[in-house]
Amino acid sequence: MEPTGRLSVRSKIWIEDEQGKVVFGAGRLRILEAVERTGSILAASRELQMSYRAVWGKIRATEQRLGRPLLTKKIGGTKGGGSELTGFAKALLQRYRTLQALTESAADRLFEDVFTPDIPENPASGS
């Protein structure tokens, strides 16, 4: 059988609290990036094709688990309301991106060291 091409490793990381509940991960990253881009939870939910309730629920759960607000709400007016990320939320995004990049880089190095293309047919024989 011929090889199908170059192999690579993929990993997902997320942060959990003591009870094993998700605090932050790629999904919440996308949500907060969309809020930052669009300026509102409603617009972010539309962009992500998620319900407003689901988006708001994930934001609220993360805020509760961290004990810190992620959004500052702007009350409506002539230009309407909206939301913007707090300084804490912006720092959280940056740190998560850094953790994600470092994890991917480390996983790639480990993969190259451990999972080489020439895996022996019979590991016990060493050939």
Rank of each mutant, 00 (worst) to 15 (best):
T4V: 14
V9E: 07
K12H: 11
K12D: 12
I13Y: 00
I13E: 00
I15K: 05
I15D: 04
I15A: 10
I15R: 03
E16L: 11
E16H: 07
E16R: 11
E18M: 11
E18N: 05
Q19T: 05
Q19K: 10
V22I: 14
A26D: 14
G27A: 15
R28N: 10
L29D: 01
R30G: 07
R30T: 12
L32P: 06
E33S: 06
E33N: 14
E33C: 04
A34T: 04
A34N: 05
A34R: 09
A34Q: 02
A34Y: 03
A34E: 02
E36H: 15
E36T: 06
R37L: 11
R37Q: 13
T38E: 15
T38P: 02
G39I: 09
G39K: 03
S40L: 12
I41Y: 01
L42E: 15
A43D: 13
A44V: 08
S45W: 09
R46N: 11
R46Q: 10
L48P: 09
L48A: 09
L48T: 00
Q49N: 15
M50E: 10
M50N: 09
M50L: 12
Y52H: 12
A54E: 15
A54K: 11
V55I: 11
K58Y: 10
R60P: 02
E63Q: 15
E63K: 05
E63P: 08
E63G: 06
Q64H: 03
Q64G: 04
R65K: 03
R65C: 04
L66K: 05
L66M: 14
G67A: 06
G67Q: 09
R68E: 03
P69C: 03
L70V: 00
L71H: 06
L71Y: 00
T72F: 02
K73V: 07
K73W: 07
K73E: 14
I75V: 12
G76I: 01
G76D: 10
G76A: 13
G76F: 03
G77S: 14
G77A: 12
G77W: 10
K79A: 07
G81F: 01
G82R: 12
G82K: 05
G82T: 06
G82V: 09
G82D: 15
E84L: 13
L85T: 04
L85S: 04
T86Y: 11
T86G: 07
T86Q: 08
T86E: 14
G87E: 15
G87I: 01
F88G: 11
F88K: 10
A89V: 06
A89H: 06
A89C: 08
K90I: 03
K90W: 08
A91L: 13
A91I: 11
L92N: 08
L92R: 08
Q94K: 15
Y96I: 05
Y96E: 11
R97I: 08
T98M: 10
T98F: 09
L99I: 06
L102Y: 04
L102R: 07
E104T: 03
S105Y: 09
S105G: 04
A106S: 04
A107N: 05
A107D: 05
D108R: 07
L110Y: 11
F111A: 07
E112D: 08
E112W: 05
V114C: 12
V114D: 05
F115I: 14
F115W: 10
T116L: 13
T116K: 15
P117W: 00
D118L: 14
P120Y: 03
N122R: 00
P123L: 01
S125N: 08
G126F: 13
